[in-house]
Design a protein around this nucleic acid. Sequence first.
RNA 1: GUGCGAUUAGUUCAGUUGGUAGAGCACCAGAUUGUGGUUCUGGGUGUCGUGGGUUCGAGCCCCACAUCGCACC
Length: 377
Amino acid sequence: MFKFVRTSKDPGSSARTGVLYTDHGEIRTPIFMPVGTVGSVKGVWHRDLKEDINAEIILGNTYHLYLRPGLDILRRAGGLHRFENWDRPILTDSGGFQVFSLSKIRKITPEGCRFQSHIDGSRHLFTPENNVDTQRIIGADIMMALDECCPGDADRSYAAKSLKLTQDWLERYAAHFKETEPLYGHAQTFFPIIQGCTYPDLRVQAAEHALQFSEAGIAIGGLAVGEPTEVMYEMLEVLDPVIPQDRARYLMGVGTPANLLEGIARGVDMFDCVMPTRNGRNGMLFTWDGIMNMRNAKWADDFSPIDPKGTSFADHSYSRAYLHHLFVAGEMFAAMLASEHNLAFYLDVVRQARAHIEAGDFAAWKEDAVKRVSQRI
RNA sequence: GUGCGAUUAGUUCAGUUGGUAGAGCACCAGAUUGUGGUUCUGGGUGUCGUGGGUUCGAGCCCCACAUCGCACC
């Protein structure tokens, strides 16, 4: 069963709370979804994702999982949930973005996208139809439509042409979704993706088209891909009144803690981003007091806790000096601690946002929170 | 003891016919938005072993010394 219910709304902004129901449990929105591309949130135990970080849903990636371990293994494993031993919801990206960002050699045609594996150079074809089949085999609760991610600086003619392709693919994707069944006993839904680059009229047209295929949720793609942040916010403002209140809105691939708060203020319910984990692995920590680069020499003798305001085990168990040392020494434990902290912080951000929306003072709280989380310390 | 070679950035080294020095790594910063455990950008941090000499000018040529390495007595 799939359903999104809005449960409260902030009087001073478009922010709202809600619940997305899935066969693997409820997801309270706004939510941040940790990215687990190849069937693992890099460096983080599933136990910690649940008990320490409080992740309610994680991602997987169709492009990566299709290439490795491959569909045969995933099917024989009984789907991704059983394979990686995660019994909460999973969302899989279609791989359209990876074809755009990873594959040097690719060709996009009306049929689908041909690309060469970044692993071994082998040639593959993703079509809307086989992309549905692949995500059925992976078994994600929420599947993402196959789209073409348009660069942020694309001209209007390219953006319109690209959008048309995405829309054709969406229609084929939806048709094949209808013709196929889940393989593992739990329901699956899919989110269509709104493209249209930075052109408001294209975005609105894209939304109206995509909404025809939306069951419980809809995604906003093609943002945070090179355009100025303010333009991204403008696009969200354009889409907010177009999307009905009973659809979960997923802003793909975003972003910084400030991006989350500004997105929530503009009616976004779901986010995912590699930033807390990728940047965490490279020493960047996000906190309520601002952003820290743990590689900086100034932390070498700071023996205070990693984050006194943090909610994770790592925050209170180890010092900044120790974490700095681990980063300088290239220890993988550094990446583990930073990932745990950052994910717990991102989940704390959306949790506190939910509380302030329910309390009705989100808009005012957000202004201050954005300033705090954006500064560098 | 003798001969030969070496000595330049934190480190390993490059340095043209003599014109006050560069690279990799390390280090110090910055970037990173639907993840290739990355990648990219910027920064040179120096008594050229020491002391003399030649020269308008020496990392480079000459002398002495020091230290290290190799070979031979």
